[in-house]
């Protein structure tokens, strides 16, 4: 199985329709132009499906950069 980091960047690249090379740990809603509210919803749904988790309500709005996404995934994937 690929690392969580790799899976997240692949997934973000797919959802935001940008090359994976443009995704880094420093990527955020400010650096990715296509990250709008609809894509954000799709991102959350895709993350939940990919990792088989449910992201808590209060976190959904906070997941606006790579590091936070990785953190919440790592915490929830056991």
């Amino acid at each position: 199985m690929e690392s969580i980091e790799k899976r997240i960047s692949l997934l973000m690249s797919t959802v935001f329709e940008i090359p994976e090379s443009e995704i880094s740990v420093n990527s955020s809603i400010d650096t990715i132009d296509s990250w709008d509210s609809i894509r954000h919803l799709n991102l959350i749904l895709a993350l939940e499906e990919e990792f088989g988790i449910v992201i808590p309500d209060e976190e959904v709005g906070n997941l606006v950069n790579f590091k936070l996404i990785e953190l919440i995934i790592t915490e929830n994937v056991k």
Binding site: L10, L11, T14, V15, E17, N42, L45, A46, E49, E50
Partner: peptide, 12 residues
């Protein structure tokens, strides 16, 4: 297919 896989296949 997972949702992301569909996105990928769709792009191809």
């Amino acid at each position: 297919l997972k949702y992301t896989q569909i996105l990928q296949e769709n792009k191809i």
